[in-house]
Nucleic acid binder design. Sequence first.
DNA 1: TGTGGATGTTAGTCATCATTAACTGATTCG
DNA 2: CGAATCAGTTAATGATGACTAACATCCACA
Lengths: 201, 201
Amino acid sequence: MPLVTSIRTSTRNRGSRRTEILEAAAVLFAARGFHGVSIEDIGSAVGISGPALYRHFSGKDALLAEMLLDVSERLRSAGAQVVTGTGTPDEMLDTLIQGQIAFALSHPALITVHDRELGNVAEPQRRAIRRLQRLYAEEWVTVLSELHPACPAADLRAATHAVFGLLNSTPHSAGEVPHETMAPLLHRMARAAFAAIVSGR
Amino acid sequence: MPLVTSIRTSTRNRGSRRTEILEAAAVLFAARGFHGVSIEDIGSAVGISGPALYRHFSGKDALLAEMLLDVSERLRSAGAQVVTGTGTPDEMLDTLIQGQIAFALSHPALITVHDRELGNVAEPQRRAIRRLQRLYAEEWVTVLSELHPACPAADLRAATHAVFGLLNSTPHSAGEVPHETMAPLLHRMARAAFAAIVSGR
DNA sequence: TGTGGATGTTAGTCATCATTAACTGATTCG
DNA sequence: CGAATCAGTTAATGATGACTAACATCCACA
């Protein structure tokens, strides 16, 4: 019995509820972990209550899976666009870094959930998410390998994950520094970290 | 009815069971999150079953709290020793980085739990853990502020957390590269990242 | 020798939670 | 105007899980 009858006039607001739920769930999952959040919690965060979620998702697991799949896909496709496009490897790396920073700063909860909760996704979709994550990381590694041809790919992979850790730290140290300061700071640190890969003492 | 009667001869192995439990729990918490692990899971991981844990800890919450308190305390005290000792700021920073890397490489599960699960600790002890974490970070900031006197403390704090993210990434990208390669790589990247704090383009 | 404490065990208990059922009001569209 | 579909609601249901109770061993030691 929705007391507030739909304010939205027409077109039925396609999918807005789904994304609204996904966003609220991301914040809750980031704060308390997947198993620490109940269906009722998520529902009441968007003003509906409990089992109404099943009108939009087939279950809690499916909700998490879709969230992670969506994030992984967005990152990977943004990355692919960079690598496909024109530019020197150096410029590509800058663009990749900038994209990751922009995403981490604007969707901190999603980033947090993204690298914490994969273990709670069941096997059919787990593999798909892992694959997208791997593809995304491989794009970074490909660019890096042009800048450091002598460096073993395994090291480049490790360095990439380390820089992901650096860039994704924003959700944890959030609020203290404005984005306009944070973004260039992180960018410089990431560039410098990559430049230090070379094993020259 | 312990079929295997105590192999340990004497002195009752003070507290060995406690630490054994803490270590097993850390691995499980890191993999599936605090709420994703049951008391029964932890018990069977150390060969006892379920409620036997209550002979060692007053509850699941207390177990997590003690785990985080212990890690935070170990890191902070190691950090304090560095800062108190002699040496140039540059050397101190190297020592701090080295200590963090050594800890992250040898206790990946603890590091993971440490920066994920604070939100699941209740308020009396949450504050204590936060305090230790803050003190530890402040030690890094103090050293950094001698190297970058012109830089605002807030930026140094953000940079410190970013480097924590970089160094603590090891658990996620583990196994691919041997420690002997990983440790110096991370060290170089961390040093370079800190050197890039200076806002000079 | 036998008593007490430390450690376990198994069998409840009580809450919480994901999911399903049954039912209701609106909107759209023929 | 209906009838269908969408998007909610509240009330079960069934599992799981934290914690407690009652009971058993073993070891140290007086």
